[in-house]
Design a protein around this nucleic acid. Structure first.
Lengths: 340, 340
DNA sequence: TATTAACACGAAACCGTTTTCGTGAATGGC
DNA sequence: GCCATTCACGAAAACGGTTTCGTGTTAATA
């Protein structure tokens, strides 16, 4: 096992001072050409690489960014991470990923772990626990310390920082409008409990589209699922048996896929009898049968933009506090679960 | 913006030395009770937290582990990360995730970035580029420096280190055996080019099952897809038109789902006419129509074990080089794409 | 020849901790 | 009242770099 070589080793070996070695390796003008060549050759031979930790301590810059997300086994979040990674790596940053597991406590613990020098800034999406509890002190503490923070997708207006979202309301509006234009009049909404910011915005878009087109709101066909990661199949079954609907908008893929399956079992033909549109254009939508028309959330783009905003803040000299909210436009990806 | 407080600040403020503060906060016996209480109260008031970077430099321990995977928008890898996160976090470690994007060069760059002090050890799965190139010098360099390394799933026997895999050969054997037991005689294998270690192992299991049951190998029904992330649909179509098969084993979910779709389009009924089994029991398998019988790879467990092995190596005192290979048993998850 | 400037390098501080060792003061024993 | 402990704390080195400033040597200038 060969030990990592340090400046001190090189200095001792070549009988010069540590500062000379440091400067020589940076090609400083101060050092004579002979000495530089000698030192550089030696360093290369022994594959010298400066120690990141020491540099971080000196510069007070880690070149790490912390990403805290609720869940990683989730297509949307992984695409965001990919976007973050891509941009961050191109700027020489590493990405530390922490999972809050939808829990407020874990979110706090993770932030505290990273906030003590491990990272230069945060990119995060709020856990449902945090949104439910409505407590954002851990975020405020971090921003007060001057650590840049970018919130994406699941955000709050109670914290001042940069934000990146897609226009969820518009997405739901687009989808609902599409269904209305196809002549659908009894459009169901399958969503979660209301504390998630995105669910709320999507419901608003749905309601606005109905209102703009003179359609009544029927509370009986707005179905709220108890969990967000899995659909309650019994609930869906009784729903489709009892309610007469000709279209369904779901706030996520899982709900949409499950709903389609149950509907098919009950003899419904898709899209003729009932059309389906889901949020989050992931693998499931693409490979569903019939394939699912979906609102694309552009996760990778979101990740890239988040990383870009964060790194700009990190590397900007001035202290002026100005925060932007970037709003991405959702896209309707038409597939076989709607007509045309 | 309140600056982070350091030992030095506390020391100056309370008019004691830095070492006294450090000891007091560690509840050292050396310091009098009065002084300790005073210092601890002050530290708590100003929410003092030691700087991780400084501690890392001092201890030569970062409490970070680096995970390098080929792709993150991939169910299996995300489950592994979740497992790693879970175990690592419970031991106070953070996880730095890097994506090699299936590229040898990126894998090398990522390793070098992290190997200079940023992490205490690596967990990784080889990129296809690396396996194709068959060059593992970057791994060897890292292990020679004494940095612990755990390889999972996509491994190589050319590097001495701890490894975690599932028994891919056994998985394929199990699946093929299952199909044979159901009376299937013309069992196709849909796989990738052979350089991926896992594909190779799975092909072996398939062949062994055929041989053990006296069935001939028909090269015409072993289909090799050009890409591993997406199925070539034209290839699949002509395959199902030309070959008469009564069962299909696929080395991943995407291939299986795509194959089922094409088959259905050609009038095949599943599972009566043709049975399907896929590798990687992910969301697609679960939500497919019909749902897909699959070989579960237990990604999360793999992640946990990898993290455990790595952290044991990191924290073990002795230098003795002994490496284990942990082999997990795959499980057949029966669903509607096979009979029973 | 004396002064000065350029050159090439080293000493030391610094980043924020931990930890070893030393030391002055208070206490105890005789 | 003297010596040896114990107590409570500080000084300083160390981790591995970067950077400012100082300095001895040489060469150019007056």
């Amino acid at each position: 096992m060969k030990q990592k070589i340090t400046l001190k080793h090189i200095a001792k070996e070549l009988d010069v001072s540590i500062s000379t070695v440091s400067k020589a390796l940076k090609n400083s003008e101060e050092i004579s050409r002979d000495t530089k060549e000698k030192i550089q050759a030696f360093a290369k031979l022994y594959n010298y690489k400066p120690n990141n930790i020491a540099i971080s301590l000196k510069n007070k810059r880690t070149k790490n960014i912390g990403v805290i997300i609720p869940d990683i086994v989730h297509h949307f979040f992984t695409t965001v991470i990919r976007g973050v990674e891509k941009f961050a790596n191109s700027k020489g940053y590493n990405v530390i990923v922490c999972l809050s597991d939808e829990s407020f406590d874990k979110e706090v613990i993770n932030m505290e772990m990273l906030a003590n020098g491990s990272i230069d800034g945060f990119i995060m999406s709020l856990s449902s626990g945090t949104q439910e509890k409505n407590d954002y002190n851990h975020l405020k503490e971090v921003t007060e310390q001057g650590i840049p923070l970018v919130l994406f997708d699941r955000i709050t207006n109670q914290v001042e920082c940069d934000k990146v979202v897609i226009d969820d309301k518009m997405g739901a509006y687009l989808a609902t409008k599409k269904l209305i234009d196809q002549g659908r009049r009894h459009i169901a909404l399958i969503t979660t409990k209301n504390y998630l910011s995105v669910s709320k915005a999507r419901a608003e878009g749905y309601l606005k589209a109905l209102a703009d087109n003179g359609l009544p709101v029927n509370e009986d066909i707005i179905l709220k699922m108890p969990s967000m990661n899995i659909a309650d199949e019994d609930l869906l079954k009784s729903f489709f048996q009892e309610s007469k609907v000709d279209a369904v908008l779901c706030v996520n893929e899982i709900f949409a896929i499950s709903a389609m399956r149950i509907a098919k079992q009950l003899g419904v033909t898709i899209p003729e009898d009932v059309c389906f549109i889901g949020f989050t254009d992931g693998l499931l939508s693409k490979y569903a049968n019939p394939s699912l028309t979906a609102i694309a959330q552009h996760g990778e783009r979101m990740g890239e933009i988040s990383a870009q905003m964060l790194i700009e803040k990190i590397e900007s000299e001035n202290e002026e506090e100005s925060y932007k909210t970037e709003i991405l436009e959702p896209t309707l990806i038409e597939r076989d679960s709607t007509i045309n």
